[in-house]
Design a protein around this nucleic acid. Structure first.
Lengths: 297, 297
DNA sequence: TTTTTTATGTAATGTACATTACAAACCTAT
DNA sequence: ATAGGTTTGTAATGTACATTACATAAAAAA
């Protein structure tokens, strides 16, 4: 009876642990373990009362069975079951152990990879597909100009996005680098134009100001920001809250770029026929300039 | 289920239901929904007490939030969550894309996410830790200047890297945007200086030329390129072959930025005492220019 | 049979929990 | 400022639960 201590924990899952002891059980106990295994693991994710009812036995029988299996109480059993489930469910995206296997977790590359994929997963959960699609729809309206601006760090993303979007559609403008020229550029913004703003902490006053002004001119703002939300969020029609934090202290820009790229890809697909044409033209121009260069050399 | 408020139940998963209302929430409520989505679905599989603690709010706030979302009580919420989990688990095929990446595999966001993580995994396998560490060691020598240059698309990464590395160490220079000025910049390069080059397809003649010339001047080249290797690889002392391809045809820059960032992080850690000092100085200067808002957390 | 052992259930108990009522704190606008 | 609303937390309450103690039934051994 009271062999609480005998838990041959060489097994990975709780199911294995149970299966390894299948011959030790009395009739009522068999009812329980059968039910647990047959509806694994969710059968265990209920109250002990419910579980006992589902098995047609009493609650103390459940208790005794679990103790026999190797758990000190129903609560700890359920806790371990929950952990196992957690483990199984966590990031279908990262396939974490793939690279964790052949490399020490402690190497920078792996730590950064871990952080980035975690950030990515979290961020994907924050952004609804509807919202994303709405952004794409908005960007597909080419009669409205599209302006892009970023901050100290994020201006690199603004440029990346600009370079790609310029190929895909017309009427794309990036703010000049010099903040002093921003008010000047503001003049180009017409009502219902779209303004893409990148603003992650530390939030920059210039970006906030320019967003307010653009908003006052009737621009629709799409905001790339972090999980703490730039104050610009209140001006924006669409806000992408992107997880940028690494536990280690540094802020990551990778996921921000991911979303920028996702928008590029989505828009390219939506406007493909037109984009294909523009790309061909671009290729031609590359060829011409190459030939041009060669001639001088 | 006699719901108290308006529950627009055209949504399939609870996650979607929450996401469809993301703008309706107050600060404390945002904490809760963020946590629920970020750790979906297991975050909801605990007692309301535990959940409230995990979110840093009180239990009544959790109750109110769930009612706002559309559930009459915490218990019914958890029950539905459990059912959903049950449902998903019993269908092992759809299992993976259901949550986190949630929704049809065909949505752009999921496809891009899939591509990026695949590229990341492959790239990590291509780069040995030894090589990576050697690069970091090389970059840690600050008596040698560090120059950075990128191409049409990748100049954004060059800038991103430059912005960060400038903070970490001295003697960091980025090439000017105008290609016409590159030869000019070349004069600054001294023997044993380091040159970081970004060159992914289509490989650019200007980059190749400048690399040759830099090499001739005795510079050590670190090359960010793609799996097909830019011709510059033959000039480079370290080459990072990064998988950039999406099946869908477009080339992704996310993993390239990942490696750029990983280098930044690694170097920052290696030179931390010095970096910390430089960062403090930078902070002071920010304060002086009053360009940045106080950090909001 | 009677006794002992094993198996299972009933009922009692204390704890953790979900829920509600209320009050404090915090905005926002006049 | 101050009145209105909103947002959030504290504390109280009743319920569901896990757990234990005890009792009964069944089976095995004597």
């Amino acid at each position: 009876m009271s062999d609480i201590s005998t838990k041959p924990d060489n097994s990975h899952t709780i199911a294995e642990l149970i299966r390894s002891q299948l011959n030790r059980f009395s009739p009522a106990e068999i009812k329980i373990v059968n039910h647990l295994l047959a509806n694994y693991p969710m059968a265990g994710m209920v109250s002990i009362t419910e579980l006992s009812e589902n098995c047609g036995v009493s609650t103390p029988t459940v208790m005794r069975t679990l103790k026999k299996i190797g758990y000190s109480s129903f609560t700890t059993f359920q806790k371990e079951l929950k952990d196992e489930l957690q483990q199984t469910l966590s990031d279908p995206i990262t396939k974490h152990d793939k690279w964790a296997a052949d490399a020490p977790e402690s190497h920078v590359l792996n730590r950064v990879a871990d952080t980035v994929t975690t950030n990515l997963r979290h961020s994907l959960n924050q952004v609804s597909h509807e919202q994303f699609d709405a952004i794409i729809d908005l960007l597909a309206e080419q009669d409205k100009a599209l302006h892009i601006v970023g901050g100290r760090i994020t201006s690199a993303f603004a440029r990346y996005m600009n370079t790609h979007l310029e190929v895909i559609r017309e009427n794309v403008y990036i703010f000049p680098e010099a903040v002093a020229l921003w008010p000047h550029h503001l003049l180009k913004i017409k009502p219902n134009d779209v303004l893409i703003v990148f603003d992650v902490r530390r939030y920059e006053q210039d970006l906030i100001t320019i967003s307010r002004l653009a908003n006052a001119r009737g621009a629709k703002i799409i905001l790339f920001t972090d999980q703490w939300l730039s104050p610009i969020a209140s001006e924006a029609i669409h806000t992408l809250p992107i997880r940028i934090e690494g536990k280690s202290g540094w802020d990551s820009g990778v996921v921000t770029l991911f979303f920028a790229e996702a928008i590029v890809v989505a828009l390219e697909e939506k406007l493909w026929t037109q984009t294909a044409e523009r790309m061909r033209e671009l290729e031609d121009m590359f060829d011409l300039t190459e030939r041009f260069k060669k001639r001088i050399e």
